[in-house]
Nucleic acid binder design. Sequence first.
DNA 1: TAATCATATAACCAATTAGCTAATAGGTGA
DNA 2: TCACCTATTAGCTAATTGGTTATATGATTA
Lengths: 104, 104
Amino acid sequence: MSSPDKVFEALASTTRRRILAYLSEGPLAAGAIAKRFDMSQPAVSKHLSILEAADLVWKRREGQFVNYGMNADNLGGVLAGFLQEVCPPSRALKAERRAEKGED
Amino acid sequence: MSSPDKVFEALASTTRRRILAYLSEGPLAAGAIAKRFDMSQPAVSKHLSILEAADLVWKRREGQFVNYGMNADNLGGVLAGFLQEVCPPSRALKAERRAEKGED
DNA sequence: TAATCATATAACCAATTAGCTAATAGGTGA
DNA sequence: TCACCTATTAGCTAATTGGTTATATGATTA
């Protein structure tokens, strides 16, 4: 149930995009994420809650810890949907393919 | 020379994403764009300059008019680049392909 | 040159954002 | 229960954003 509005708002912050990139390597507890960033732990917590509201990450309490992980499908879906809406189809898809080349 | 930072900042505004979608149908003069949106002409002008700074649109003066058009390649490139950086590759690309299906 | 049309810039305002520290809540284990 | 650790929420501030109206710039035409 994540609106494109929330996703793009979430992605507008460089810090949040870096958190996502960091999470792409695998799930982590909130504190472990905070340690990597040069800001207070509450600040990171707020960023995580914005990412969660956009459904870009999931969250699961495990004992004292709260683990976060990426929702890659949702991110890909929203961005691809936007590209489809906004790009003259042929050119847009070519650009994606160019970036894909060789992967997978 | 458009940084991802500027692109994501530009895309953070719903109004700007709507302007892009509108421009995807073809180039238009600033005034023609402004008429479609329920806000003042200066406000739209400012949005256009932010889109231009992110290199998401081009701008060309023609007589009294200033025409704007999309830079679809740059948009696609930045978003695809980000997906590559942030998504566990296999899943991310599958999501893009799902959205592409049938197009082109 | 003066009048007019199309855009952009300036100056301002209200609302939002991103950070901080301090306080609170949730969970573990002596 | 108490002490301790982890994480979130509250309350604050400074900076940024997105809009406004008024003014300035640039191009055309009489």
